[in-house]
Amino acid sequence: MSRFFNSMRDGVGFDLILVGAAMLFLLALAGLPLVYNVLMSFQQVDMFTLGSLIRPFAGFTNYVAVVAQPEFWLVTKNTLIFVFASMAGQFVIGFALAIFFAQNFPGASTIRGLFLVSWVMPGLVVGALWSSILAGDFGVLNFLLRSVGLIEGTIFWKSDPNFALWAVVIANIWLGLAFNMLLLSVGLAAIPRDLYEAAELDGANAFQRFWTITLPMMRSTIGAVMSLGLIGTLQQFDLFPALTEGGPANTSTVAGYWAWQMSFQLYDFAKGATISVMMFVLVLFASVVYVRSTRHEVRG
């Protein structure tokens, strides 16, 4: 015991206590809920057995039932559109802004800081803001589109089946734009300026410098941005109740919001847990692919 206190006084072993405390914290707040959710997806769960760990075993019945739901393929299509459209918009615009603010001009840092406001705002606040912007009768977006002659009538972004999902996509792109710009700006700052100067002396134009220097040097950063973007987009929830509530007729319902509807509107907790497990497996697969690709890159 005295040896333990002496090592603590000397600082040896204190790092192990910090790591152990962090692991216990993650286990309590992430590990146990995850295990509980996975167990629930293989059980028959109702309001009376929700708080119990011992429930009738259902095997893969819940997974089969979820796939057999009439709205399963519509929700799957909506989820794919929402994820890929959001990631593409956030990445392309974020990359363009990162390159723009990498230039030296007065006020660049201040303006870039203003973009970060959207990142720190709660999702429900962003949803309320875009709910006003996308309003059919008095929304700013319809006013701007009519002003430049792109539309003549009124688009009901939140209630039209053809536009409801895209309304959430637009809001989500705006919400995640600053995060993409910030990470990509860090990657750009790590590229040696000498490479651009040498390429410019060799006669390379701006596109050639971007294609041969910027993209190859930022491969790992881009991979991290895309992986984090996938996880963040799949976890997005707040915008849907604030904008469309999954409607009309499930045309803007994605997997995460569908899992919430199953659990807390229909009280089918087993199917809600099953949908969540399916999403977790997808995110885990994407994360493993990214980690393996970066590991090969480091070894190479």
Rank of each mutant, 00 (worst) to 15 (best):
P106L: 07
V83D: 10
L145E: 01
L129N: 02
G139Q: 05
G127N: 02
R146L: 10
Q90T: 12
A65R: 13
P70R: 10
A88H: 03
M181L: 13
Q103K: 15
A68Y: 01
A167H: 00
L141C: 08
S118L: 14
L165F: 10
Q90G: 09
T110F: 15
L129V: 15
L183Y: 06
V186D: 06
L175D: 06
A88W: 03
V92P: 06
L134T: 01
A128T: 09
Y63G: 03
A102G: 15
Q103R: 15
S131G: 15
F72T: 01
P192T: 04
L134F: 04
Q103I: 04
F105N: 06
G59R: 08
W157L: 05
A65H: 07
V66N: 00
L145R: 07
S132T: 03
R146K: 15
V67F: 15
A96V: 05
F95M: 14
M121N: 00
A98M: 06
L144V: 13
G127M: 04
A88C: 06
S159L: 12
L116K: 00
R112Q: 13
Q90F: 03
G107W: 10
A102W: 03
K158Y: 00
A190N: 13
G127E: 06
S131F: 11
A178T: 03
G127T: 05
M181A: 04
L74N: 10
W157G: 02
V92M: 14
F138D: 10
V186F: 11
A171F: 08
F163K: 05
R112H: 07
S109D: 03
G127D: 08
F156I: 07
G187E: 11
A102D: 14
S109W: 04
N162H: 15
A164M: 09
V148K: 08
G123E: 14
L184C: 01
G94Q: 07
N172Q: 10
A167R: 01
W174C: 14
A108W: 01
P161T: 05
F138W: 05
I81V: 14
L188Y: 04
S159Y: 11
P161L: 03
I99P: 01
I93T: 04
N78A: 08
G149A: 07
L116S: 03
G176L: 09
G149S: 07
T61R: 13
A58L: 07
I111R: 07
F91Y: 14
V67G: 02
Q90E: 15
P192V: 00
F57I: 08
F105L: 12
T61I: 00
L188H: 05
L97Q: 06
E152P: 00
P70I: 02
M121K: 00
L182H: 06
I99S: 14
N62R: 04
A85V: 12
F105E: 00
A189Q: 10
I191L: 05
L165E: 07
G113N: 12
A128W: 10
T79Y: 11
I111H: 09
P122M: 11
D160T: 08
G149E: 04
L182V: 11
V120C: 03
I173P: 02
S131W: 08
W73I: 07
A135D: 15
S86T: 15
T110Y: 13
F163H: 12
T110K: 13
L141D: 06
W73Q: 04
F101I: 09
L184W: 09
G123Y: 05
I191C: 06
V64W: 09
L80C: 08
S132Q: 12
